Amino acid sequence: MGDTENGEKARKTVFVTVGTTLFDALVRAVDSLEVKQELLKRGYTHLVIQMGRGSYTPTKYGGEDGSLAVDFFTFSSSIADYLRSASLVISHAGSGSIFETLRLGKPLIVVVNEDLMDNHQIELAEELAERKHLYCARPQTLHQTIESMDLESLLPYPPGDAMPVAKLINQFLGFPDD
């Protein structure tokens, strides 16, 4: 089913983004053997990591022997093309990355950076996960999330509907519901 006409495996890319932040824990997690094996088991062929300002350098790999091909870069003027060509996106909890990915209808795993103080992004990610628009993980649980995820169960995010997010922000700020 995932093959092209000439019998080669169809390209299935996982795109990882940390935005402009430093999130070595996420880069380390996706570079781990457990995560790579889970992605390979799920039929993914390529892993592209946008590593931001991090100091941890993932292992580049060509994937010639049928294992996962891995590539990385620090920054790009636009990640839109990477998002569009991805079969799965693994992202930090930045609202821009989250909503851009959801708008494109791509399956998404948001990995929360627990090292950030006052991280209100956790509430946004967990709320959207509760509504079944995405999966939410921690760096140390990412491989289990990939192993147990059912992408068919994710619901599309309704475009242009800012009310759920506005309500969430109001709750977070302590304003009463209307």
Rank of each mutant, 00 (worst) to 15 (best):
residue 1 M to G: 14
residue 1 M to L: 10
residue 3 D to V: 05
residue 4 T to E: 10
residue 4 T to A: 09
residue 4 T to W: 05
residue 5 E to Q: 05
residue 6 N to G: 10
residue 8 E to K: 10
residue 9 K to E: 08
residue 9 K to D: 03
residue 10 A to I: 04
residue 13 T to N: 02
residue 15 F to L: 02
residue 18 V to D: 03
residue 18 V to P: 05
residue 19 G to D: 02
residue 21 T to Q: 12
residue 23 F to G: 06
residue 23 F to M: 08
residue 23 F to N: 06
residue 25 A to Q: 14
residue 25 A to V: 09
residue 25 A to K: 13
residue 26 L to P: 05
residue 26 L to Q: 05
residue 27 V to P: 02
residue 28 R to H: 12
residue 31 D to A: 11
residue 33 L to P: 09
residue 34 E to L: 13
residue 37 Q to V: 14
residue 37 Q to P: 11
residue 37 Q to N: 13
residue 38 E to N: 07
residue 41 K to R: 13
residue 42 R to D: 04
residue 42 R to S: 08
residue 43 G to T: 00
residue 45 T to E: 01
residue 46 H to A: 03
residue 48 V to W: 01
residue 49 I to G: 01
residue 51 M to W: 06
residue 54 G to C: 07
residue 55 S to V: 12
residue 57 T to N: 07
residue 58 P to H: 13
residue 58 P to A: 11
residue 58 P to S: 12
residue 62 G to N: 14
residue 62 G to Y: 05
residue 62 G to Q: 12
residue 63 G to A: 08
residue 64 E to T: 10
residue 68 L to G: 06
residue 69 A to E: 11
residue 69 A to T: 03
residue 71 D to N: 03
residue 74 T to D: 15
residue 75 F to V: 05
residue 76 S to A: 12
residue 78 S to T: 07
residue 79 I to G: 03
residue 80 A to D: 06
residue 83 L to A: 02
residue 83 L to R: 00
residue 83 L to K: 00
residue 84 R to P: 03
residue 84 R to M: 04
residue 86 A to I: 01
residue 86 A to M: 03
residue 88 L to N: 01
residue 88 L to W: 00
residue 88 L to R: 00
residue 91 S to P: 07
residue 97 S to V: 04
residue 98 I to G: 05
residue 100 E to Y: 00
residue 101 T to K: 00
residue 102 L to D: 08
residue 102 L to Q: 06
residue 102 L to E: 07
residue 103 R to C: 09
residue 103 R to E: 15
residue 103 R to P: 03
residue 103 R to W: 06
residue 104 L to V: 00
residue 106 K to V: 02
residue 107 P to H: 07
residue 107 P to D: 13
residue 107 P to F: 04
residue 107 P to C: 11
residue 108 L to V: 01
residue 111 V to W: 00
residue 113 N to K: 05
residue 116 L to V: 12
residue 116 L to S: 09
residue 116 L to T: 11
residue 117 M to T: 13
residue 117 M to R: 13
residue 117 M to W: 10
residue 119 N to M: 09
residue 119 N to H: 05
residue 123 E to T: 11
residue 124 L to C: 02
residue 126 E to P: 03
residue 127 E to Y: 15
residue 127 E to I: 04
residue 130 E to H: 15
residue 132 K to W: 09
residue 139 P to E: 09
residue 140 Q to C: 14
residue 140 Q to H: 14
residue 145 T to N: 11
residue 146 I to N: 05
residue 147 E to T: 08
residue 147 E to Q: 14
residue 147 E to G: 09
residue 148 S to C: 09
residue 148 S to E: 15
residue 150 D to E: 15
residue 151 L to G: 09
residue 152 E to Y: 05
residue 152 E to H: 05
residue 152 E to R: 08
residue 153 S to E: 14
residue 153 S to P: 07
residue 155 L to F: 07
residue 156 P to C: 12
residue 159 P to Y: 06
residue 159 P to H: 08
residue 160 G to I: 05
residue 160 G to Y: 06
residue 161 D to K: 13
residue 162 A to S: 14
residue 163 M to V: 13
residue 164 P to W: 05
residue 164 P to G: 11
residue 164 P to I: 07
residue 165 V to R: 03
residue 165 V to S: 10
residue 167 K to I: 13
residue 170 N to F: 14
residue 171 Q to K: 10
residue 172 F to K: 08
residue 173 L to R: 10
residue 174 G to P: 09
residue 176 P to S: 15
residue 176 P to A: 15
residue 177 D to T: 15
